[in-house]
Design a protein around this nucleic acid. Structure first.
Ligand SMILES: [Mg+2]
Length: 310
DNA sequence: GCGACAG
DNA sequence: ATCTTGTCGC
């Protein structure tokens, strides 16, 4: 997949001296305004030394925004280019606002890919349901990703194998595009821990505005059954009763599951090659605390690996 | 200050 | 996701 950090850098380099743009405008040039916070995250990762005019990106309200070297430095750099601020706002903002980016909108392509691949998702149970779950999770230090996989036997409720690996990611976290960020982190782990398992991801399956959350993404990519288990609700509304359905546009796309008496519920959805009923049943079976055991352990492993990597 | 969109 | 000590309750 494309390097979004590079795409963002290429855009920022187009902002002329003496002009400014906003985080949201850069995000729109990337192809989706939802990435505006991610633009800030990416700008903050360039350097030191900063090789592009990050100081020319400001808040849409005219405020200065943030800067890795401190706001006084940002103000000074802008002043050198004839851009000034008064009362904490960019002066003459409307007239020095730049948005004529040359771009091929990479996020629009990514969205199209999601929509195309979503067509290939099947929610029928496999002929032979694996008795193994492969829980996957990741922890981060900037663009360094620490991934962990826990191979967990469903009937025995026992860990069979554990595997961790470090990799570099080239996508920031962008809501509804999570699969693109974590895909490379899990590839090595899935290849190592084998293919006869149901994948379980920390995030959603079809419980997604475009029916293609990370569990669907990873499931389709590897042609394996997958389940998504999210700690909070991404979209849709929750129904009533025990294990209430999560619906969106009249369709049931997930299930709210109370895995532990006092804890907040989690949100289960099939990712690929599995039914909603099986996804919920299996998740309930392998849950002792709030987070399903394979995911809870994968999270702990990934966190431990990150802490030992300092 | 409110609202707030997985990780 | 990350930044982070102690404390309360079961
Ligand atoms: Mg995670």
């Amino acid at each position: 997949m494309i390097d979004l950090y590079q795409e963002c850098a290429d855009l920022v380099n187009q902002i002329p001296k003496g002009m400014v743009t906003t985080y949201g405008t850069v995000a729109k040039a990337l192809g989706d305004e939802i990435a505006k916070r991610a633009v800030g995250v990416m700008l903050n990762s360039y350097g030191p030394p900063i090789k592009m005019p990050c100081h020319r990106v400001v808040y849409s309200g005219g405020g200065l925004g943030g800067f890795a070297y401190g706001l006084p430095k940002k103000m000074e750099m802008l002043a050198e280019e004839g851009v000034f601020e008064k009362d904490g706002k960019i002066a003459d903002f409307e007239n020095i606002f730049f948005d004529k980016f040359k771009t091929d909108f990479p996020l629009k392509n990514a969205r199209k890919k999601q929509l195309d691949l979503a067509e290939t998702v099947t929610l029928a149970d496999p002929k032979k349901m694996p008795d193994m779950i492969l829980g996957l999770d990741a922890s981060y230090i900037g663009t360094r990703a620490f991934g962990a996989g826990i191979l967990f036997h469903i009937s025995d409720k026992k860990v069979v194998k554990t595997f961790t690996s470090e990799s570099k990611i080239n996508w920031p976290y962008i809501p509804t595009y999570l699969g693109f960020r974590e895909m490379p982190v899990f590839k090595l782990i899935i290849d190592e821990l084998g293919r006869d398992a149901i994948l379980m991801l920390d995030g959603n399956g079809v419980l997604h505005p475009f029916g293609f959350g990370i569990a669907s993404h990873i499931g389709v990519e590897f042609g394996m059954p997958s389940i998504g288990a999210a700690k909070s609700l991404l979209c849709g509304s929750v129904g009533t009763g025990t294990n209430p359905p999560v619906t969106l546009g009249g369709h049931t796309i997930g299930t709210e599951l109370k895995t532990s008496p006092r804890a907040k519920p989690i949100y289960i959805s099939p990712g690929h090659k599995i039914s909603m009923a099986s996804a919920v049943k299996i998740t309930a079976k392998i849950s002792r605390l709030k987070i399903p055991e394979p995911l809870r352990l994968a999270h702990m492993e990934a966190t431990a690996m990150r802490r030992s990597a300092l």
